[in-house]
Simulated assay, not measured.
Amino acid sequence: MIVVSAASGALGRLVVEQLLIRIPAKDIAVAVRSPESVPGFAARGVQIRRGDYDVPGTLPAAFEGADRLLLISSPELDPIRRTSHHKAAVDAARRVGVGAVVYTSFLDADTKADGVTAAHHVTEQALRDSGLGHTLLRNPFYSEAFLNAGLNTAIAGGELWDGTDGRGINTASRADLAEAAARVLTEDGHLDRAYDFTGARWTYPELAEVLTQVSGKPVRCRQRSEPTAGIQGWLEHQVRSGALERQTGDLGHVLGRASTPLHRAVRELVPGSGS
């Protein structure tokens, strides 16, 4: 039995879809805060269990009988609450004798214990201390944080504004990361390993060229002099600092193929661009 926690989220749903390709639905269970949020999975024969990170008492029953548990990190952004969620999940997995835990960590969580990686760093240590067999999937930022429907505005206006100083970006799509997780859950040879996942590195000037190619309209990359507000501005600052330029071959190794290239990701976003 494979149990997927937080399965009602975007990544969790994609993982379950990948598992359904590989194993019978009766061998999959999902642990979700609100069981009514995943009626489609129930209709296909997937077991639906209540497992709410905010209600730790629900987690042991949600994880019961799991040969492998995919512990998808809590959506909570506050590192203290997030750490509490993860520690409760690890404790529940240990108490009910889960066979092995696959945890969606974050890139560099093994060496950095602050900011985005704070809760992940602590959770990785909690898994080591638990005695449970486990695999760490250190994911990068999702490509969707940068490559989204907003690119159609750049095409319409002929300008792609760049606040990254042209530095490299090593994101990966949710779809690729979900497939990698499903492979780790269903294949042998991944236990007690840590994978540092990155996609193929790309830049905003390269993105402007791809937008031009797929749309048939010229798109010029323009450097922004003032920082963007909000989360987008924070992400651009991370890129400018070089924090997203690291490259590894781990994602391609697990997938058995290259990660989704920039041009294909963009084609899926631009109406009428074809495949």
Rank of each mutant, 00 (worst) to 15 (best):
R95L: 13
V96R: 07
V98C: 07
A100T: 05
V101S: 12
T104N: 09
T104Q: 08
S105P: 03
F106I: 14
D108P: 00
D108G: 00
A109D: 04
A109H: 01
A109E: 02
T111D: 08
T111K: 14
D114S: 14
D114V: 13
G115E: 12
G115V: 11
G115L: 10
V116F: 11
V116G: 00
T117N: 13
V122E: 14
E124A: 06
Q125P: 00
A126E: 13
A126S: 12
L127G: 04
R128C: 06
D129Q: 13
D129R: 11
G131A: 10
L132H: 07
G133F: 00
L136K: 03
L136D: 02
L136H: 03
L137S: 04
R138G: 05
R138H: 10
N139S: 10
N139F: 14
N139P: 01
P140C: 11
Y142K: 02
Y142F: 15
S143T: 03
E144Y: 06
E144A: 13
E144S: 14
A145D: 09
A145Y: 11
A145I: 08
L147W: 00
A149K: 12
G150K: 09
G150Q: 11
L151S: 06
T153V: 13
A154P: 00
A154Q: 09
A154L: 09
I155V: 15
I155E: 13
G157P: 00
G157Q: 13
G157I: 08
G158N: 10
G158L: 10
G158I: 11
L160W: 04
L160K: 08
D162Y: 01
D162F: 04
T164M: 07
T164H: 05
T164I: 07
T164E: 05
D165T: 06
G166W: 09
G166M: 11
R167T: 11
G168D: 12
I169M: 15
T171H: 10
S173N: 01
S173G: 08
S173P: 01
R174G: 00
A175P: 02
A175E: 00
A175T: 03
A175L: 02
A178S: 06
E179D: 15
E179C: 04
A180K: 07
A180E: 08
R183C: 04
R183M: 08
L185W: 04
